[in-house]
Simulated scan of single mutants.
Amino acid sequence: MTQHVRDVMTTDPMTVEPLTSVQTVARMMRDEDIGAVLVTEGDHLRGLVSDRDLVIRAMAEGGDPDRTTVADACSEDLVTVKPDDDLGLAVRVMREHSIRRVPVVDQGDHPVGIISIGDLAIERDPGSALGDISAARPNR
């Protein structure tokens, strides 16, 4: 049976506007136990900021976390998939672009979800170390 992106994606992803501070986004990630937030303007996807982006593009540069915005830290050259795409396409996209998370969009650039390498591991290889780690409860 063919699986689709919608079958394993995380729905209702967290979103922020481009001028949101990286400190605010870091707190959201901590509070929601997530590693990425989509950057939107209205209903349009503009970028993705990951926990790694916050460290490498914002904190390591010595910026003020309360004044540095996610527009300064996010990835803007995004590759996306659609909810009805075959799950294999999401795997190929991640491999080809060496990325761990892919925004899921419909009707142009309206974000409806996000699919991660952890989601795929849980679905395709649940007994693997990555599958186990991804399925585990947060260790707070």
Rank of each mutant, 00 (worst) to 15 (best):
D72Y: 00
G108R: 01
S21F: 05
S98I: 09
I115C: 07
G88E: 07
L130V: 10
D33W: 02
I115V: 15
H97N: 15
V102I: 15
S98P: 10
E61S: 14
R124Y: 07
R6V: 07
R52H: 05
P111I: 08
M28F: 09
Q107A: 12
R27G: 05
G35D: 03
A90I: 14
G42R: 04
T11Y: 02
G62T: 11
L54Y: 04
L48F: 00
G108H: 13
E76S: 13
L89H: 11
M1W: 02
D106H: 13
A60V: 04
V39R: 01
R124H: 09
H4D: 03
Q23N: 11
A90L: 11
D106R: 15
P65Y: 01
D72N: 00
V8H: 13
V93K: 12
D119W: 06
M1Y: 05
D31Y: 05
G42N: 11
I115E: 02
T40P: 07
E96M: 06
V8F: 12
T68G: 02
L87V: 11
G47E: 00
S116A: 13
P126Y: 08
T68M: 05
D33C: 05
L54G: 06
V25Q: 01
L78H: 00
D109M: 13
E61V: 07
A136L: 02
Q107G: 15
G108C: 15
P103Q: 04
E41M: 01
H110R: 15
A136M: 06
G131D: 11
R100A: 12
P83Y: 08
M29Y: 08
R30T: 13
D7K: 10
L120C: 10
P126K: 14
S128C: 14
A129S: 12
S21N: 06
R140T: 13
D7H: 04
T69C: 03
T11G: 07
R46K: 03
D109W: 05
D106N: 13
G35T: 10
A135P: 08
